[in-house]
């Protein structure tokens, strides 16, 4: 499988989500201007129409986004992909071959993104702009274990790849690599789905 193609899908989905979100904001802003017949600021519109989805969902959603980035980094930085070896950080892997050390690196990544999220994600963040059904909320929560599985697979693949490969491990690598990528991309699709649905149906 061409994993560069997978990376392309990841970035295309991310760009699509970002683009549609900006379009949704502008479209909503124009519609609200019509309704209010007045000169309202974009910030005020976002603040006023934002909704609270509840703390459980918000915790899951933020965790999912952090895990999405972490899973991506683990998949393309640790796991063997179709990039030139220098780009895969293969050498870096070989410096810390133990499961514990690689997991430690994963935890470091989580904490890093957690701090970034805590600093930059405000009350009126992505999902507060969109209606999210309870079913969709459950799907988004489900991406947490999906992404954790993807990360664990990437770590295992990274360890195997840095050790001597026998044919049995090669077989499992061929099985597990697409699973890790599929979990990553499906999770990404679920996480940006409210933005796509918002574009289709109207954000607010």
């Amino acid at each position: 499988m061409n994993y560069i193609f997978g990376m392309g899908i990841f970035f295309i989905l991310m760009a699509l989500g970002s683009g549609l979100h900006i379009l949704n904001l502008l479209k909503t802003y124009k519609k609200v201007q019509k309704i209010t017949e007045g000169d309202v600021q974009m910030g005020e519109v976002i603040k006023k129409i934002s909704r609270n989805h509840g703390p459980n969902f918000t915790a899951f959603a933020i965790t999912s986004w952090i895990l999405l980035i972490t899973a991506f980094v683990h998949f393309y930085f640790f796991a063997p992909v179709d990039l030139p070896k220098g780009v895969t950080y293969f050498r870096f892997i070989s410096l810390m071959p133990s499961f514990l050390e690689i997991s430690g690196f994963g935890i470091f990544m989580l904490v890093l993104f957690g701090i970034i999220a805590a600093l930059f994600i405000r009350k009126h963040w992505l999902y507060s702009f969109y209606p999210v059904s309870n079913r969709m909320k459950r799907y988004i929560a489900l991406t947490v274990p999906m992404l954790l599985v993807s990360i664990i697979i990437s770590i295992v693949l990274g360890i195997w790849y840095s050790s001597t490969l026998d044919s049995e491990i090669e077989f499992w690598i061929e099985i597990l690599r697409p699973v890790a990528l599929a979990l990553l991309l499906v999770s990404e699709g679920i996480l940006i789905w409210p933005v796509i649905a918002g574009f289709k149906e109207g954000a607010t």
Partner: peptide
Amino acid sequence: MRPFLESREYPKK
């Protein structure tokens, strides 16, 4: 009753 109960409001409304 949702339109009646909705507590969010448009700016200046």
